[in-house]
Structure formats: structure tokens, C-alpha cells
């Protein structure tokens, strides 16, 4: 019995061997597990939610599409901020003051809105309220206020609470006039607390409130450039094949903001600093 031609041809074998060696680095990128650190920020990131939340599901889909192996590691916020060599997930502005990143890839966004309970007000509240916020008692989460002095000068006062649940209960009972909250968090909190009255809670979308949710690749991450490129490509593909929209629908139902994708593109440009070097 004669040998298969391939075994007769030593040159061919050698070529195949070299090709394999050349391909190894790219296989290494795919094989490496990329650890992405996040802190509990439901419904965007949570170890207790299906797919680890909205952001978690997008990460899974992008990774699957691009062949990357990603794992979300949940840590307290202070530890995330103190660590300046890790990959992060969330709003880049929370991290960029303490860490240089190789790449920032916006994958979603969130909006902050005012919410009020219509039965407590005789008139519809409009965004004109920004001209005279002094009239209102505004509820916010403890720890989210910046530049207190500006608000004090403007005579704008806030009532803070440690939970969204508490804020929306106060809103319903008329102890505060407005709650300032992330739209998705508020929608879910209202649904949970007052399922029969959701229509009575009104939302005033703030025009300057859209913030990005991003994958931030540390400068210390090996193959950072390749990984960032793979994530970007994966995101592009899941947007194109409709998977991205399906994920959004699970969380936003029929309330997906119309300008979602254009904002994503805007954030992509805003954080395109990695091309500078």
C-alpha cells in the first residue's frame, strides 16, 4: 500500500507546520479569557440577572460573534476605581480620571429623566420646569449629586434616599415632586411597586443626559488592540443581524429610544482616542 501523497511530500508538511506557527498568535487572542470588571448596576450589570443584565447580554453576544472569550467579574465600585490596570465596564467618565485605557468601545447608553406622579399635580409638568426648579422638591439617589455649591446658589434643594424604591414611594405619596433617575431603572421600579398605576407616572426626558456604557480595555491588557478590534467588529455584526435590537427589546419593551443607534455612533466618535498614537 502506497503512502498518501501528503506524507510523501516533506516540503508540504514543513509549509503546513510554518503556517500553523504563524497562526498561533491569532489563536492565542481567541483562546485567552478576557476579564471585564463591573460593579452591580442593575439592570445593566448584575450577577443575579439573566445573562448578567442588559450589558452582560450584549457582551455575551458580541463575544460569541467575534470568537472572544469574555468573563464579567463583579467587584465593589471602590475596588474598580482603585485598580488602574484592569478592564472595566460602565460609564467611562467614572474611570478615566484614574486610568489610561488602550481602547473604549461604547456598546449601549442610558438616559436620565425626571419622573412625576400625575395625580399629585393639577397641571402637566413640562421641561420648562428647568427654569424654576426651586419650586420643586427633587428626589435623587444618595451620592449622585455633583457641584453642590452651584445648586445651593440657585436655591435648588434635593431630598436624597438610599434606594430607588424609597424615592418612588415618596413620589407616589407626594413627599417629593420629582425623582431624577435612570430611565430603565425607574421604569422597572415603577412596574414593580405600582403595576396598576404605571400610566400615572410621567417621564420628562432630559436632553443632555445620555451617557455611554462601554467596554474599557486597559493598556496593560495583552493583545489590547486586537481584542478591541474584535469587540468592535462583533458589535457591528450583532447590530446588523438584529440580535442587538432583540436584546434591547427584552429590557425596554417598546420603549427603545429612537436615537439609540445614532447616540452609539456619537459616543464611538467621542471615545475614538485610541487612534491618536
Amino acid at each position: 500500500m502506497s503512502a498518501h501523497p501528503i506524507y510523501k511530500n516533506g516540503t508540504l508538511m514543513l509549509r503546513l507546520f510554518y503556517m500553523l506557527i504563524l497562526l498561533l498568535p491569532s489563536f492565542a487572542v481567541y483562546a485567552e479569557e478576557i476579564i471585564l470588571d463591573a460593579n452591580e448596576s442593575p439592570p445593566f450589570w448584575s450577577k443575579d440577572l439573566p445573562h448578567q443584565g442588559l450589558g452582560g447580554e450584549i457582551i455575551q453576544a458580541i463575544s460569541q460573534q467575534s470568537g472572544l472569550k469574555s468573563r464579567i467579574n463583579f467587584l465593589p465600585l471602590k475596588r474598580l476605581r482603585d485598580n488602574s490596570k484592569n478592564n472595566d465596564l460602565g460609564n467611562p467618565l467614572f474611570y478615566m480620571a484614574n486610568q489610561d485605557f488602550s481602547a473604549i468601545i461604547p456598546i449601549a447608553s442610558y438616559r436620565v429623566s425626571f419622573f412625576y406622579y400625575q395625580p399629585n399635580h393639577t397641571k402637566t409638568i413640562t421641561l420648562d420646569l428647568l427654569q424654576n426648579l426651586q419650586k420643586y422638591n427633587i428626589g435623587v439617589l444618595e451620592g449622585t449629586l455633583t457641584k453642590h455649591s452651584y445648586f445651593a446658589e440657585q436655591d435648588i434643594s434635593f431630598e436624597t434616599s438610599y434606594s430607588q424604591t424609597s424615592l418612588f414611594k415618596k413620589l407616589k405619596h407626594g413627599r417629593i415632586d420629582l425623582v431624577l433617575a435612570i430611565d430603565l431603572v425607574a421604569i422597572n421600579t415603577i412596574n414593580q411597586l405600582f403595576p396598576e398605576q404605571t400610566e400615572k407616572f410621567k417621564q420628562l426626558k432630559l436632553p443632555n443626559s445620555i451617557s455611554p456604557i462601554a467596554i474599557m480595555i486597559a493598556e496593560e491588557q495583552s493583545n489590547a488592540e486586537n481584542i478591541a478590534s474584535q469587540y468592535r467588529q462583533g458589535l457591528k455584526q450583532i447590530i446588523a443581524n438584529g440580535q442587538y435590537l432583540q436584546i434591547l427589546k427584552k429590557h425596554y419593551y417598546s420603549y427603545i429610544p429612537k436615537d439609540w443607534l445614532s447616540n452609539l455612533e456619537r459616543f464611538k466618535q467621542l471615545y475614538a482616542f485610541d487612534s491618536y498614537e
Binding site: E40, S41, L49, F94, T165, T189, Q192, N208, S209
Partner: peptide, 20 residues
């Protein structure tokens, strides 16, 4: 998740600034 929403701040959260 609503029961879990007791943290004071997180990295995907509102930043209540004057321009907001």
C-alpha cells in the same frame, strides 16, 4: 433587582450635575 437597588452610586449611574 428593585430590592437590590440600594447602592449609593454605581459605575452605570446618574451624575447629577448643573448642566444636566
Amino acid at each position: 433587582l428593585a430590592l437590590l437597588l440600594s447602592s449609593t452610586a454605581n459605575a452605570t449611574g446618574p451624575r447629577v450635575s448643573p448642566s444636566l
